[in-house]
């Protein structure tokens, strides 16, 4: 555990909590892509199956359970409790265009051709692109609530911090996971355009709206 990994995890946790609280407090999931949230629930489910097979640390187990629990709670709020506020018309990204290629790739390129390992790989690849329905929704409506942009910033920051974590672990622990690193770079790059808008607009007190 190093400072980048810890702050990355906390940033990820902050993102998840911000989104849950935003929906809960406003009693609305307007502007939130339910599809991205389903993909994240799928990501956590397929990655954390090792909860049943290996114990790493109390921290690791607790965080996994919190992430999974929050992911399903978010999906429940969007598709059940506050379904009336869900903006399905604007959430029109075709997720099969992500899930099918990612599924194929995880069968082809993995560390070990075993069910758990393929599912882990699938979760890593899927996480790198799971935010696309949300970004697509924002580009379609041309704007995002400020609290939604805080959520996205924390979520993007988390993977960027993990990149520094992997550099750290490469030098000090001999840790090197090519699959996680490449997917992590892709994931971080997808947020770059958003990071730019966040810094130039949201941090200066303006609402995030895209030019028509």
């Amino acid at each position: 555990m190093n400072i980048f990994r810890l702050t990355g995890d906390l940033s990820h946790l902050a993102a998840i909590i911000i989104l849950l609280l935003k929906i809960w407090k406003s009693r609305s999931c307007a502007g939130i892509s339910g599809k991205s949230q389903i993909l994240f629930a799928l990501v956590f489910t397929t990655r954390y199956l090792d909860l049943f097979t290996s114990f790493i640390s109390l921290y690791n187990t607790c965080m996994k359970l919190i992430y999974i629990g929050c992911a399903y709670a978010t999906v429940y709020l969007i598709y059940a409790k506050f379904r009336a506020t869900y903006d399905g018309n604007h959430d029109s990204f075709r997720v099969e265009f992500l899930v099918v290629p990612v599924g194929g790739l995880s069968v082809l390129i993995n560390h070990d051709f075993s069910p758990l390992e393929i599912l882990w790989t699938f979760s890593i690849y899927l996480e790198s692109v799971a935010i696309l329905p949300q970004l697509f929704m924002i580009s379609k409506t041309g704007e995002a609530e400020t609290i939604t942009t805080h959520y996205l910033f924390c979520l993007g920051l988390y993977r960027a911090l993990y990149l520094f974590n992997w550099i750290w672990r490469f030098y000090f622990e001999g840790f090197f996971d090519m699959i996680a690193i490449v997917a992590g770079v892709v994931q971080t790059v997808l947020y770059c355009d958003f990071f730019y808008l966040y810094v130039t607009k949201v941090l200066k007190g303006k609402k995030l709206s895209l030019p028509a």
Binding site: R5, D9, H12, D50, I56, N60, M63, K64, Y67, H111, W120, Y162, N165, F170, G174, F175, F176, D177, M178, I179, A180
Partner: peptide
């Protein structure tokens, strides 16, 4: 030095 991967992250 041997470089390895292991799934101990979140």
């Amino acid at each position: 030095r041997e470089f390895t991967y292991k799934h101990d992250e979140l």
